[in-house]
Amino acid sequence: MLLIRCPYCEEERPELEFRNAGEAHIARPTNIAAESDDDFEKFFFIRANPKGVIYERWRHIHGCARFFNAVRDTVTDKFVMTYKAGEPKPAKLPGAAK
């Protein structure tokens, strides 16, 4: 079982308290009704599914109930960091070589 740091509770809690909520940093268009079919497809259906570092949303559903963002390595399953919803994608990851 993974330990995940909730950026709101500011502590590590067991994975059982959390639920994954898909890829992060995909903002809903402000005028969504006017989106072209192609743009809507990209927004709603297309996901990165990377091997390696992924930016994704999690919810501390059985805790503070907040949604937040996490950086996770899909190969090692390790959480690199977590940060609050609405905060920008981190420019530099902790422990990154370059």
């Binding site: 903002a27 919810r59 559903i61 949604f67 919803a85």
Partner: peptide
């Protein structure tokens, strides 16, 4: 409830 919270917290905060 989860769906509502999701939109409230992340899209319509």
């Amino acid at each position: 409830m989860n769906h509502m919270e999701d939109y409230l917290q992340t899209e319509f905060p």
